[in-house]
Design a protein around this nucleic acid. Structure first.
Lengths: 183, 183
DNA sequence: GCCAGCATGTAAGGAGTTACATGATTGA
DNA sequence: TCAATCATGTAACTCCTTACATGCTGGC
């Protein structure tokens, strides 16, 4: 379990409210850890109760008040201890791979539909890669020297880019294979 | 949710018991869908109750009896319908990426420990890649012509191989970055 | 005699998903 | 005025993980 830890890292990078965290999980952090606002609010309350983070009520004039959270000493210690733990093997869930092997047990119409679906899926990954590359030139310009925090963010983003490139190449392989079946 | 579907595909490829399925999930299917035997037994009972699969009691002499499951008409229809559904975006959970960004908020000792942990993690992926490559030459010899089922299994395995190669290259990048911090 | 493997389960608890709910402001 | 965005939640349910449980056989 590491939603707590993902939240600690995000709040250390930049304090913020549950709502802001939810938006970060949709964008940057969502690349490697997904969470909905419901989960986030629940975990934030627990973390506050356990003294890992503290909240500050922020009056925003017109907009609703927000509770901005920051990490305190205990939270830092929890994170440091977790960083020293062994990395758990990831639980892989790749639905498309199941479908591809399932294609052996369907008819021509089903395969044609799957090809169309793989193409649609490929387009979403192409869009993701384009978003990452745009973000990379915006946030990590080659000329500017980076501090540790940004160098680490950059290497994680490079992982996302490498992943998307690998997926796209593999999906081309998949499409070739699907189209070449039954010959 | 697609554990049912992963089981349907596996049982279509080869009928078997809950125990045998659990072993396949540890090996081949586990590359893209993980499940424990507890989950598998529970889902198998539900699938049998819903008439997707049928069980046959097999007396094995010395060893305990087993219930060998096969997919029947309803199960095939469920699978065909599911293959036509859009692929859900994967829920990503990459603990190591969280830790890498977390390394910005720990001390030298913590970073040294993380480097060691990444090296250990890298070794497990190297072993996984070696296993995949061994399996590939064993199961998909270049000379033999393959039927559709095996061509699809092969393209999924190639995806696993591409993934492991990508991960290894990225982990080298991560190690370089971690070692270059604070300079 | 002991361990690994075969074979199937129960139970408890934590995590995650989906649906629903509220109420304000800002911009088109 | 209508939709989008900001901001925070509850409730019900499903799913997944972890721990525990049983009992047999074959090989070292």
């Amino acid at each position: 379990m590491a939603l707590e830890h993902a939240i600690l890292v995000s709040l250390l990078e930049q304090p913020g409210s549950g709502y802001e965290l939810a938006r970060r999980f949709e964008r940057s952090i969502g690349r490697f850890w997904t969470a909905t606002h419901q989960q986030i609010y629940r975990v934030l309350r627990r973390m506050e109760a356990d003294g890992w983070i503290i909240a500050e009520e922020v009056d925003q004039g017109g907009r609703p008040d927000k509770r901005s959270y920051s990490v305190v000493g205990t939270g830092r210690e929890v994170l440091a201890a977790w960083l020293r733990d062994p990395v758990q093997p990831e639980a892989v869930r790749h639905e498309l791979a199941v479908k591809i092997r399932g294609a052996a047990f369907t008819d021509d119409a089903g395969r044609t539909a799957l090809v169309a679906e793989v193409e649609r899926y490929r387009a979403t990954h192409e869009a993701t890669l384009a978003r990452y590359l745009t973000g990379e030139v915006r946030d990590f310009p080659a000329a500017a020297p980076l501090d540790d925090q940004h160098r680490l963010q950059h290497v994680v983003l490079r992982g996302g880019i490498a992943y998307e490139r690998m997926v796209l190449a593999w999906l081309d392989d998949v499409l070739d294979t699907l189209r070449g079946l039954g010959r």
